[in-house]
């Protein structure tokens, strides 16, 4: 029995290191869980990108669920996500609100003109101050907000067809089911 001790120790260590490798390939170390899930979205009042005189507020969006998609013309991963929103955005059958994050309005407008605009409305947060209230720490990020203004789901990083099929669509379906 004693002679197996080194083998057992070796296998235990191999198991531990194997778990470490598996864990690090599987989870994103940059992922920060949002404490805002199932909490009311913060109040905000931001100008529309195309009509800065118009202000969009949390209250003005209440009544129907919407997907708040944080993007920026400077953001590389957003360019990766954009074609997916162009292709699948309509099929989500939910209002798409673009959140232009820390961007020059002219750049954002040009970007949307060149790549297409999948959003129903785009709001602009040039300073990034409101984004702090949303706990945004990068772009792209997407928040699913229900008719009562509660954040129900958040995705950090680009939306991919896989994420949409596996997470976003079920979350939207759940919202639709509870709506009268």
């Amino acid at each position: 029995m004693k002679r197996f001790v080194p083998l057992i120790v070796f296998l235990a260590l191999a198991g531990l290191f194997g778990f470490g490798i598996w864990w690090n390939t599987w989870h994103d170390p940059r992922y920060v869980p949002s404490p805002l899930i199932n909490k009311p979205a913060p109040n905000f009042a931001l100008p529309e990108l195309d009509a800065p005189a118009q202000t969009v507020t949390k209250a003005s969006l209440l009544g129907k669920p919407y997907l708040l998609n944080v993007f920026g013309s400077w953001c590389v991963a957003c360019a990766e996500e954009h074609p997916v929103l162009m292709a699948d955005g309509r099929q989500l059958s939910i209002e798409l609100v673009g959140y232009d994050y820390k961007d020059a309005p002219a750049d954002a407008k040009a970007w949307l003109r060149d790549n297409g605009n999948p959003y129903d409305v785009v709001i602009a947060d040039q300073s990034g101050r409101t984004a702090i209230d949303f706990g945004v720490y990068g772009a792209p990020e997407s928040f699913l907000i229900d008719a009562k203004g509660v954040i129900r789901y958040k995705h950090i990083g680009p939306l991919t067809p896989r994420v949409i099929a596996r997470e976003l669509q079920p979350a939207i379906a759940a919202l639709k089911r509870e709506a009268p």
Binding site: V32, P33, F134
Partner: peptide, 8 residues
């Protein structure tokens, strides 16, 4: 900050 970004 914790309320917005969690204990991270």
């Amino acid at each position: 900050l914790v309320a917005r970004y969690s204990d991270f």
